[in-house]
Amino acid sequence: MSALGTLGAGTTGGADTKVTEPKRRGRWVPYALLAPGLLWLVVFFAIPMVVQGSTSLQTGNLTKGYDLTWHWATYWDALDQYYPQFLRSFGYAAAATVMCLVIGYPLAYAIAFKAGKWRGMWLVLVIAPFFTSFLVRTLAWKTILADNGIVVDVLNKLHFTNVTAFLGLTQDDRVLATPLAVICGLTYNFLPFMVLPLYACLERIDPRLHEAAGDLYASPRTTFAKVTFPLSLPGVVSGTLLTFIPASGDYVNAQWLGSPDTGMAGNVIQTQFLRVLDYPTAAALSFILMLLIVLMVTAYIRKAGTEDLV
């Protein structure tokens, strides 16, 4: 899952140094190899984006058809009406990303440094849940978090729900149909996307660096703070991106584990497109979501460091 890492390095730093020397004959070969796949991406990825941009500025209706009228008001209306959903999207996604990091980092660390010969088994267990459709697994959370279920009972006895209720995350001693349930569902769904890049990064750290730190009288805590953690930062960056981006566009968790009050941007896009059939608004909302994510990710990558980080 260091997918983001490898390709990202290619786009930002031109890190492809291993390319073999160009052949004198057959210069058309790379283009012939690239053409079919790239054509597919242009036609079914790039062009739809342009069509969507154009649709967002059209007015009309289903029966009469749509005309491009550069109707920018669609954007303002969409933002004006649905800004709470966008705020929730990014708020929940950010909370889920932080929780994934808090849960995923120790797990990745344990697999990389403590699992020993069981490492393969741990990794299988991280990936195995993927083999059941994520929709089926998300439905299982409905059972786990059900009112009067064991989990909610324990949380109530520990007065945990009082704390989360104070924070506005739960209501009336229940977890299902609250923001907490949505955040937990998002955390669960995207945790492997955090663990795997972190593991890939930690696993590459030379154990001799730990020994060297120990030889120089660093305590385990200092070794972690000054050696391990800084070296794992590229994994943290790609892990947070791989978690945050899909989480902010998700709508299944919000729909099944949340309530109408926990709707996210994805829910609105889906409703506008598939139920209301208001295509310009759906296109505008989807464009806004994409734009905001691109802006946030770019700012984050800038802030997180140099090109070798992503």
Binding site: F44, P48, M49, Q52, P246, G266, A282, L289
Partner: peptide, 12 residues
């Protein structure tokens, strides 16, 4: 995000 790709392809 998948929802963006889905909506744009659906629009196409």
């Amino acid at each position: 995000p998948e929802v963006v790709m889905g909506a744009s392809l659906g629009t196409l």
